[in-house]
Design a protein around this nucleic acid. Structure first.
Length: 808
DNA sequence: GTCTTATCAGGT
DNA sequence: CCTGATAAGACG
C-alpha cells in the first residue's frame, strides 16, 4: 500500500532520462526511506531494475497516481549523500548545464555502484534445465562458471533481455540472486615483503642465486619492508620470483591492513603565529562573514593560517576541507599536514585507484578524519559536519573542472558556505579577477597579509629588453644579464630556476623588433596563425585577417611565429654551463608520476644546479638556495590567445618571483620580454597588485569579458567531421532563432560556430560556439541551451558546455 | 539507458 | 501485405 512518494534521480547516463521521476513508497519502507539513500526501482515497460537516489519525499504526488510504480527496496542503511548536498547537486546541474548523473558521480565513489553488491549464482542444475530456450541456456552457461556480480554479468552478457531472462531462470528455481544490502566497508590488505633474517650476508643464502634474486635481496637490504607491488615494479620482475623466495623461507610476507596508520611522523611543534597571521585567523573564526579572501604576499605564511583555522574547527568536532592545486599535491604537502594533524586526514588526488578513493571516502564518511586534503573533487567528500573550506592558490586553473560538470570549485565552495553554513577561505598572493570582483562588490571579506614571515625580503626584479639583446647581436633566448647572474649563482653553489611557457599552443604572431603582437580588434586577444590560407584568426569570434608581412607598428619585417621549445633551451643551457647539473621538467619529461618527486628531491638535496621547466615549477617549490630565477619569455604567456592571458601572466610572474630568496639570501629575478613597457610586466616587477587589477578590470569591462559578462562555450566533438559541422550549424540556427529577442535587447552576443583552435584532437573534430551574456539573461539562456543541446543524445556527437571556464 | 512504437522503403 | 531497418518517443 503506497503511503507517500519519493522523487528520485535515476542512475543512468542518458540525456533523455535526465529528469526527476516519482516513485511510490510502500508502507513497510516508510520508516526506513530517507533523502540521500539509494533505492532500487523498476523502470520502463520491461522489468528493468536500476538504482536511483532519493532527492525528496512528500505525502502527495504531482502526476496521475496510476502511472506510479513502487520502490522495490532501499539499498542503504544510511544516506550516502547528505540532504544539503542533494540541494547542492540540483544547484550544480542548473549552474553548469549538466546532467543529474554527472553531479551524482562527483559525490559517490564509483566503487559503490549498487551492482557490485548483487550476486547471481546457480542453485539447482537438475532437470529443471530441460526446456530452456537458447538464450536462457547461454546465460546459464556463464552463471554456471561460478557466483558472479551482476555488474560483471552485464558486461559479459551483452543482451538486452538480461533482466527478463534472469527473472525467468529465477522463477524456475535454477538460479539465486543474492543481495548484500549493506555496503561492504571492509578494508583491503596489502602484502609487505621483508627479509626473514636481515643480518645474513648475501653469500650465506643456500640457493642458486639468479640475478633477479640477488636484486631482490639487495633491494630489501637497502629499504627494509616493501609492498610487493612496489618491489615487483621497481625491479621489473614477476611476482613469482618473490613468491619462490617466500616458499624457500628466505623472505617474509605479512598481510597488513591497507593504509595502516603511519603515524611514526613526529608531530610538529605548533609555531607561533605573527600578528598578521593571528589577525587573519581571528577574523575568519569570529566574524559573521562566510567567505574570505586571504590576500597574502608570497612567503607570508598562509599555510599556518589554514592549519590554525582547521585546528579550531577540529576542536569543535567539525571536519574541514583543504583544497590545493593538483600539481602541488605531492608527498611534501601531505607530509606537512600529517606532521600537524597525525592520521586524522584523508587525501584525495587523481593518482588514487578506485579502491583507494573508496577507502578515503569511507574515512570521511565514518568521521575517522577531521581534514580532507585534495584537489578540487575533495570538495564533494561525504563530510557530516563541516567547519571550513580552504582553497589555497585560489587563482589556479585547476579549480575549474575540465570534465562535465565543468564546475568552478570556488563558486561551488561559496554555494556550500551558504547551504552548509561553512566558512570559506580563499588564499593567494594574486587573487583572480572574478574573486576580486566579488570583494569589490562586498560579497567576499578581504584579509590582507603584506609581509613575509621572518622578515624575509622580496627579491629584486629586473626586466630585460630582449629586442635590445637582439640589436646587440644575441640571438639566443638567454640574455647577457641573465647569463652573468646564473654564472654568479653557480659559482656560489647556489641554485637557478628557468621558466618557459607551456609548450606549443598554437602560435601567436609578433614582431621581433618592437614586440607588437597581432590582436583581434574586437576581442583584444592574440590571433593565432593558420597555415591553411596563410591567415590569422581569433578563436573567440572567428574573425580573420591576412597574415602580415610588415609590423603595423614599427614597419619591421622581422615577423615571427612564436614558440621556443623547452628541449632547445635545455641544449643551450647545457652548452653555456657545461659544468652545472641541468634538469628539465615539463609535461613531456614527466612521463611517470614518480619523476616529479624525484626531481623535486634531487633539487632540494642540491643535486641539481639549474632547473628548467614550465608553470609546473611555480607552485610549492620552496627552496632557500635558489637565488636566480629567469623567466625566459614573458611574452609567450602574455600573448596566448585567451582573454585572461594578462591575468595569467601577472599571476605567473608573481608566483615565479616568489620562488627566489625564500631563505636569508636575497634572490634576483629576471623577466625577459620584447615588451618592457607592458604594464602587466611592470606591475609584477613592482609587486603592484592594485595597478594590475585596476587596469585589467577596465579592459575586461571595455571588451566585455568576465567578470562583467558570462562567456558560454558550447563545444561539439565527433569523429565524424561532416556530421559535427552539420549538427553544429543546425543547432546554431535553432539557437539563433530562440535568442533573437535577447540579441536585439543587447543582453546577449551570439558568435557563429568556429573550429576549435586545435581542431582535431585524438581523431575527433571540435567545433566551438561562443556566447557572451549578461548576468540578467544567463538563466533564461541556459534554459534554451538545455532544450536545444541537452534534451536528447545525438549519435556520435559529444557536447561539452562551459560556463565561464576559460581554459578550453 | 533500454525498449516500444511509428514510419518508410523495398520486396513478395 | 509483409519485412527489416531506422528514427522517434516513452519510461514515474
Amino acid at each position: 500500500m503506497i503511503k507517500s512518494y519519493a522523487k528520485v534521480i535515476l542512475n543512468n547516463n542518458s540525456k533523455s532520462t535526465d529528469q526527476i521521476y516519482t516513485y511510490g513508497i510502500d508502507e513497510e519502507l516508510e520508516n526506513r526511506i530517507q533523502v540521500g539513500k539509494r533505492v532500487k526501482v523498476n523502470f520502463g515497460k520491461n522489468k528493468h531494475i536500476i538504482d536511483a537516489v532519493v532527492i525528496s519525499i512528500s505525502a502527495n504526488c504531482d502526476i496521475s497516481k496510476n502511472r506510479i510504480k513502487p520502490i522495490i527496496e532501499i539499498i542503504d542503511d544510511e544516506p550516502i549523500i547528505k540532504e544539503e548536498m542533494i540541494r547542492l547537486c540540483l544547484w550544480i546541474r542548473e549552474r553548469y548545464v549538466c546532467k543529474f548523473s554527472d553531479v551524482i558521480r562527483l559525490m559517490v565513489p564509483s566503487m559503490i555502484k549498487y551492482e557490485h553488491n548483487i550476486f547471481v549464482k546457480v542453485v539447482d542444475t537438475g532437470f529443471c534445465e530441460i526446456g530452456l530456450n537458447r538464450k536462457e541456456n547461454e546465460l546459464l552457461e556463464i552463471i554456471k562458471k561460478g557466483k558472479i556480480e551482476l555488474g560483471k554479468l552485464k558486461k559479459n552478457y551483452l543482451n538486452n533481455d538480461l533482466y527478463s531472462l534472469l527473472d525467468s531462470l529465477k522463477e524456475k528455481n535454477i538460479i539465486e540472486i543474492e543481495n548484500k544490502e549493506k555496503l561492504n566497508y571492509k578494508r583491503s590488505y596489502e602484502k609487505i615483503i621483508s627479509l626473514k633474517d636481515s643480518n645474513k650476508n648475501l653469500e650465506q643464502y643456500n640457493i642458486n642465486k639468479t640475478q633477479n634474486q640477488i636484486n631482490i635481496l639487495n633491494y630489501l637490504k637497502e629499504f627494509g619492508k616493501v609492498n610487493i607491488k612496489k618491489l615487483v615494479s621497481d625491479l621489473s620482475i614477476s611476482a613469482s620470483v618473490v613468491n619462490n623466495l617466500i616458499k624457500k623461507d628466505i623472505l617474509l610476507c605479512e598481510s597488513v591492513l591497507y593504509d595502516i596508520d603511519e603515524s611514526n611522523f613526529e608531530l610538529e611543534h605548533k609555531i607561533t603565529l605573527n600578528k598578521e597571521q593571528q589577525n587573519a585567523v581571528d577574523k575568519v573564526i569570529n566574524q559573521d562573514d562566510k567567505v574570505f579572501l586571504l590576500h597574502g604576499v608570497t612567503g607570508s605564511g598562509k599555510t599556518e593560517v589554514y592549519m590554525e583555522i582547521i585546528e579550531h574547527y577540529q576542536k569543535e568536532n567539525k571536519q574541514s576541507i583543504m583544497l590545493v592545486p593538483e600539481i602541488s599535491l605531492t608527498t611534501q604537502t601531505i607530509e606537512r599536514f600529517k606532521k600537524r594533524f597525525g592520521n586524522k586526514i584523508a587525501v584525495f588526488h587523481s593518482r588514487l585507484s578506485k579502491k583507494e578513493k573508496y577507502i578515503e571516502w569511507n574515512k570521511v564518511y565514518n568521521k575517522e578524519v577531521y581534514i580532507v586534503v585534495g584537489a578540487r573533487s575533495a570538495l564533494f567528500a561525504p563530510i557530516r559536519d563541516i567547519g571550513a573550506i580552504i582553497i589555497d592558490e585560489e587563482h589556479e586553473d585547476s579549480y575549474k573542472s575540465s570534465t562535465s560538470p565543468k564546475y568552478d570549485a570556488i563558486e561551488v565552495a561559496i554555494k556550500m558556505s551558504s547551504i552548509l553554513n561553512a566558512k570559506v577561505v580563499l588564499g593567494t598572493a594574486t587573487p583572480s579577477l572574478s574573486t576580486y570582483h566579488m570583494v569589490m562588490k562586498g560579497q567576499i571579506e578581504l584579509i590582507e597579509m603584506k609581509n613575509r614571515v621572518k622578515n624575509a625580503i622580496m627579491p629584486q626584479i629586473d626586466i630585460v629588453d630582449m629586442s635590445e639583446e637582439l640589436n646587440k647581436g644575441n640571438n639566443t633566448i638567454i640574455s647577457e644579464l641573465l647569463y652573468r647572474n646564473i654564472k654568479k649563482s653557480l659559482e656560489k653553489k647556489e641554485q637557478v630556476i628557468l621558466f618557459l611557457n607551456k609548450r606549443g599552443y598554437s602560435g601567436f604572431v609578433s614582431c621581433k623588433k618592437c614586440g607588437h603582437a597581432i590582436r583581434c580588434d574586437k576581442c583584444d586577444v592574440s590571433m593565432t596563425y593558420h597555415v591553411k590560407g596563410n591567415m590569422l584568426r581569433c578563436h573567440y569570434c572567428g574573425r580573420t585577417k591576412k597574415m602580415i608581412i610588415k609590423c603595423p607598428k614599427c614597419g619591421s619585417e622581422k615577423i615571427e611565429q612564436f614558440g621556443a621549445g623547452t628541449q632547445h633551451v635545455e641544449i643551450l643551457v647545457k652548452h653555456l654551463f657545461p659544468n652545472a647539473v641541468t634538469e628539465r621538467m615539463d609535461v613531456d619529461s614527466m612521463s611517470n608520476k614518480d619523476s616529479y618527486e624525484k626531481i623535486y628531491n634531487n633539487f632540494k638535496g642540491g643535486k641539481i644546479d639549474i632547473l628548467i621547466g614550465t608553470q609546473m615549477l611555480a607552485k610549492g617549490f620552496d627552496f632557500p638556495e635558489v637565488t636566480t630565477v629567469g623567466v625566459l619569455s614573458a611574452d609567450a604567456i602574455l600573448n596566448l590567445p585567451f582573454y585572461n592571458a594578462s591575468e595569467k601572466t601577472f599571476q605567473l610572474l608573481t608566483q615565479v618571483s616568489g620562488r627566489a630568496g625564500r631563505g636569508d639570501k636575497r634572490g634576483r629575478v629576471f623577466i625577459q620580454t620584447f615588451e618592457p613597457q607592458n604594464y602587466i610586466i611592470n606591475a609584477a616587477k613592482n609587486n603592484d597588485y592594485n595597478l594590475f587589477i585596476n587596469e585589467e578590470m577596465k579592459l575586461r569591462k571595455e571588451f566585455a569579458f568576465p567578470p562583467f559578462v558570462n562567456i558560454i562555450n558550447i563545444c561539439m566533438i565527433s569523429v565524424n567531421e561532416e556530421k559535427v559541422i552539420e549538427t553544429a550549424l543546425q543547432k546554431y540556427n535553432e539557437l539563433s532563432d530562440s535568442v533573437q529577442e535577447m540579441v536585439q535587447e543587447r543582453k546577449l552576443l551570439l558568435y557563429k560556430p568556429i573550429p576549435h583552435a586545435i581542431y582535431k584532437v585524438n581523431n575527433e573534430y571540435r567545433i566551438n560556439l561562443f556566447i557572451k551574456v549578461s548576468n540578467y539573461a544567463l538563466g533564461s539562456l541556459k534554459k534554451i541551451i538545455r532544450a536545444i543541446y541537452m534534451e536528447k543524445d545525438i549519435e556520435n556527437i559529444k557536447i561539452s558546455i562551459n560556463i565561464n571556464t576559460d581554459t578550453i
